[in-house]
Amino acid sequence: MKIDLTGRTALVTGSSQGIGLSIATELFRAGATVVLSGRSQESLNAAANVIAGDAAADPPRTVAADLSTRDGIAELVAATADVDILVNNLGIYESKDALDITDDDWREYLDVNLLSAVRLTRALLPAMMRRRWGRILYLASDAAIAVPEDMLHYGVSKTALVAAARGYAKVAAGSGVTVNSVIAGPTKTDGAVRFLAEKYGADTPWEEAQARFMSTERSASLIKRLIDPTEIANMIVYLSSHQASATTGGALRVDGGYVDSIFP
């Protein structure tokens, strides 16, 4: 299968590092014009340089804005035109006792993890529907299904994303626009590498630390390793393509079999 996104413009939020950076990289390699979004212009510039490398294509564009606010969303929308592919990757997470999660914590998680995606969808979906083509993707998490008690606010925000994707897919019905969520499992990000180094000691070889972590704290995984961000990006690229035109309203798992269910 050859996926060619030449002529398509893709906006990826939270794309200066981690999974978002991998998604932006793979969309760029598939030929899309990519727009990176994050809070730090310096980090975005560095990410754009990494993605472009020695490629002959124009490097990704960058827009620095705080997407937890209406003003930040407006800045981003004003700076982008004719977005064909919207990847709502932006998200925050932390571990916190469920009974210690404050109203302010809940508002922050809903503003960043849910409302940033909803506001961008609301702003960009109508034009996609008029053009009769578009792709909107929400990056969810295994925590959306197996909600962890020590990350309750995070899990609830991701559950809401899955529901929003299904609802907006109905809004876009028959328009040529598809809307899906992608449920990511435990992933090897820079943060995960640092976490395991702190947990098991910086001198512990990576493979040993990963094996210990997966056997004790993520034992439900069927691949018995952390997912590479590119593996999640591959699913995003496929769902962004013409080939995925009949897949909409879905919650597609790239979780290494972590969630013990045959359904999302």
Rank of each mutant, 00 (worst) to 15 (best):
I223R: 10
T178Q: 09
E207M: 00
L252N: 09
I85A: 13
S219F: 05
L76C: 12
S95V: 03
S141Y: 03
L114Q: 08
I101Y: 00
L139F: 05
T9Y: 10
G250R: 15
L36Y: 10
R29C: 09
G257Q: 05
D255M: 02
I19L: 10
Y93K: 01
T248C: 08
A30K: 07
G20Q: 03
V77A: 10
A169P: 00
N234L: 10
S40N: 08
R8P: 03
N234R: 15
T25N: 13
A146E: 14
R132M: 04
G53K: 04
E26G: 07
G155V: 02
H242Q: 14
S95F: 10
G14P: 03
L67V: 01
W106E: 03
I92V: 13
A123G: 09
G134Y: 04
V50S: 09
Y93F: 12
Q243K: 11
A117Q: 05
A55C: 09
A209N: 01
L86K: 04
Q210E: 15
E26A: 13
V177K: 11
S240T: 07
E108Q: 13
A57W: 01
A32L: 11
V147Q: 02
Y109R: 00
Y138A: 06
K188N: 06
N49S: 13
G249S: 09
D66N: 14
N88C: 14
A78S: 15
R135V: 11
D260F: 07
A173Y: 09
M128D: 12
V34P: 11
T121G: 12
D260T: 14
G250Q: 15
Y93T: 09
S68F: 01
I227T: 15
P59D: 04
S16Y: 01
A233S: 14
T248E: 06
T204L: 05
K224W: 01
R119K: 05
T9S: 13
E149M: 12
V171G: 00
T80P: 02
L5H: 04
E149W: 05
I51L: 08
A78K: 11
T204M: 12
I73T: 13
R8K: 15
V35F: 11
L86N: 07
Y93L: 07
L90N: 12
L27Y: 08
A55G: 07
G14H: 03
D103P: 01
A140P: 05
M214R: 00
G7Y: 10
L11T: 10
Q243P: 00
D58C: 04
A55S: 14
D58R: 13
D71V: 03
L67P: 01
T69E: 00
H153W: 05
R122A: 14
S261P: 02
A244F: 07
L137R: 06
V177M: 09
S240P: 08
I136G: 04
A165V: 06
I232V: 15
D66G: 03
L222V: 06
